[in-house]
Amino acid sequence: MIVFDNKKVKQWMNKDFSHLTGFGLCIFLLPLLGKWIPMLANYMDVMVYVGIYSIITMALCLLTGYAGQISLGHASFFGIGAYVSGVMTTRYGVNPWPCLMLGVAASATVALLIGGPSLKLKGHYLAMATMAFCIIITIIFNETATYTGGPDGLAFIPGISIMGHAVDSEVKYYYLVWSVVFLVLLFCLNIIRSRVGRALRSIHGSELAASAIGVNVARYKIYVFVFSAVLTSVAGSLYAHYLNFINPASFDLLVSIKFLIMIILGGMHSLWGAIFGAALVTLLSYEWLQYFEEAEVMVYGVIVLVIVIFLPHGLVSIPKRLKSIRAR
């Protein structure tokens, strides 16, 4: 299927390497620049959320962009991570780190259970099954109020600390979250370049063809589904400990749809696109569109439409589009 040209691989590696260094430098320098440019310092808070959502969109990029499986259920894994962390730390006083691992285990188990039968479904049916799952989980969060606090939410979730150092400021949390983003990015880039990544792309192309060339389609689909659920759960735990508060509305179907919008706007076939998409949607809805006050929803709708119409491959395709326009 793909012929390996050594030179081409090297080019890829170089491109990735330079992008990664540039990206790492950017995220490292941003808070430092905040000392001179106070506006940037104001963005620390929102950038933490951009980071948290980036982890999820990268996971979804593998699942949807590479393996071609649509999930409307990832808000639930986000929620399971957050609620396991929140409930265990507030009600039972467990240290946040084991809670995070527990959340991962819970999400992985749920993902296995729901993914097994769901991933046999194709196209819209998969979207519908995961949608049903998502709504059910939201109702469970609402109805088990003795543990979760119900619709009013769970407040006073403790912060996180690393080896005795409390991660208590926005900048500290920024570095924590973005280090995770960086690690996830490295890991995902490696997956994509590996056998697994090629197998996933072949599934996206045609499941029949993929299984004909010996790819175990069912198994790979479950793998990537569980993997994405695990990453999303980690993001959920980080979210709970940063906001110190969670409620079911933060993990409902609309949030799943928001994740989908993020990857589409960013460009779902690229991990960089996933990060751009998360950044764009988060900054738009938490910062930039505030000036439109009550017209915000309308403006947001228009922006989504414009990007889908004119940049069907998302923000990452801008350089390519510019090049093709210049070439004309």
Binding site: N14, G22, L25, L33, I37, M39, L40
Partner: peptide, 22 residues
């Protein structure tokens, strides 16, 4: 050889982002 223009591009986009934010 390939790397340098990419880093330059990265920095350029960083500056562009900063300007937009401002």
């Amino acid at each position: 050889m390939k790397t340098r223009p990419s880093i330059g591009k990265g920095i350029a986009s960083l500056i562009a982002a900063a300007v937009t934010v401002t």
